[in-house]
Nucleic acid binder design. Structure first.
Length: 158
DNA sequence: GCCAACGTTGGC
DNA sequence: GCCAACGTTGGC
């Protein structure tokens, strides 16, 4: 099984929004970056676990864990003019390059694992999310990193 | 195919 | 709000 980290801006869609969604499940739409697209298309599999990270927020933190419940398939929002994620170029061409996965909230951290807390932890020093300028919104996380963050977050089941 | 200019992300 | 770092675009 593989582990991932997905960023979200809580003002747009927060971890609690995911928890409150029907069946605590949502299509992770709106990713418009090819590297992240490739991960969702090729590498992210059913049952993989995902850390949900709040970016551009107070606090910046990992808020909980989600599970992949649907593997890569077309992100239809790219072709929907009414969607905030509409991709005009893709729509004009008539081919949709964008892919999403379905995620379901699995556990909520009783202790939000803040960016500062991540930085303080020796075993997390090489995490992509901590690198300056790292913008990839879907990132791989090692099993060791995942376990450390789980220990810090003291998760409770949803 | 290079690379400068641009728009966006996201920490600070 | 600022701006560094990044990915993408488009002229050549």
């Amino acid at each position: 099984m593989n582990h991932w980290l997905m960023k979200t801006e809580p003002s747009v869609f927060s971890f609690e929004d995911l928890v409150k969604a029907p069946k605590s499940t949502t299509p992770w739409e709106g990713v418009r970056n090819y590297q992240a697209r490739n991960l969702m298309r090729d590498s992210i599999k059913m049952g993989d676990l995902v850390l949900i990270y709040h970016s551009n927020a107070e606090p910046m933190a990992v808020m909980g864990v989600a599970e992949v419940v649907k593997e890569g398939h077309p992100d239809k929002s790219a072709m929907d003019p009414k969607s905030q994620y509409f991709d005009n170029d893709a729509a004009k061409k008539g081919t949709n390059p964008w892919v999403l996965v379905g995620v379901k909230a699995k556990s909520r951290f009783t202790v939000a694992v803040t960016r500062d807390a991540l930085k303080k932890e020796k075993g997390l020093a090489s995490m992509m999310v901590l690198k300056k300028g790292a913008r990839l919104s879907v990132q791989p996380v090692t099993c060791e990193e995942f376990q450390i963050i789980l220990r810090l977050g003291k998760p409770e089941p949803i």
